[in-house]
Nucleic acid binder design. Structure first.
Lengths: 137, 137
DNA sequence: GTTCATGCAAACCCTTTGCAGCCAT
DNA sequence: ATGGCTGCAAAGGGTTTGCATGAAC
């Protein structure tokens, strides 16, 4: 039995064709971030007849199940990535649109320190650097 | 002459009633973050007959002129605040919706270090901590 | 056979835009 | 006077939802 179907069952979701396909696409490229449209078009390319509404519904369910992370970078369109367990933040190259992942334990630590100082506990956080290739000197 | 009108002229914008009023509202509470609707409703309360479209247009112009900062926190609605020159990041209390400002030179420094390490220069960044009041122990 | 999921189109929310009239300069 | 501004209503883009059909269990 495929890994995907186990994942779905674990999340309490029926193993349906759309969910399997979408999960496969999300899993196909590590570190890649997809918009709902990206996935929809990929499905069309594969001649899978799955509606855009279903893509949104499935992504929302995956997010609720903790299988997928959703990010709202600038630009209106949300992007999704498979949650592979290692936390990271993002850098967006504003010239190419490319998304680079990074992580910094030190920043994480400082964030918790700051929240604590204000009497809070961090539930979630979002750190995005909008960057541009450095000019060679 | 009021400070507001000087600000507007400096930005190359005509000194109109809507722009003055919106600027006044933004200036009325330091550290406060407004949605376009917040401002619109505030204007209605003051019996200023200004359309929501105008509020959006004016806020966009203010942002372009560097007078105002726009943030896209979770929840679909953008919030605006007067740019008073001191950079800061945000913490959002997910229970009350309250926005707390903070700043950390150390985090800023680490961000630049990370971007540089990847061959990039930071153009902009967004750091938001979604927090919950700490339980008393 | 039930229950849950899907496709389609319509609805939704926030934001932007076209246009004719109005106001600041 | 004239060019930029405004209000209104309509359009826009991304996302969600209602409903009848269809698939998974």
């Amino acid at each position: 039995m495929k890994v995907e179907s186990t994942e779905l069952r674990k999340a309490g979701l029926k193993v349906t064709h759309p969910r399997m396909r979408i999960l496969e696409i999300l899993d196909s490229q590590d570190g890649k971030h997809f918009t709902a449209e990206d996935i929809y078009r990929e499905l069309l390319d594969r001649h899978d007849d799955i509606g855009l509404a279903t893509v949104y519904r499935v992504l929302t369910q995956f997010e609720a199940a903790g299988m997928v992370l959703k990010h709202n970078f600038e630009g209106g369109q949300a992007v999704y990535e498979l949650d592979r367990g290692k936390h990271h933040d993002h850098m967006v190259d504003i010239e190419s649109g490319k998304v680079i992942e990074f992580s910094s334990e030190e920043i994480e630590r400082l964030q918790h320190e700051i929240a604590e100082k204000h009497g809070y506990v961090i539930e979630d956080h979002s750190l995005v650097l909008y960057v541009r290739p450095a000019k060679r000197k």
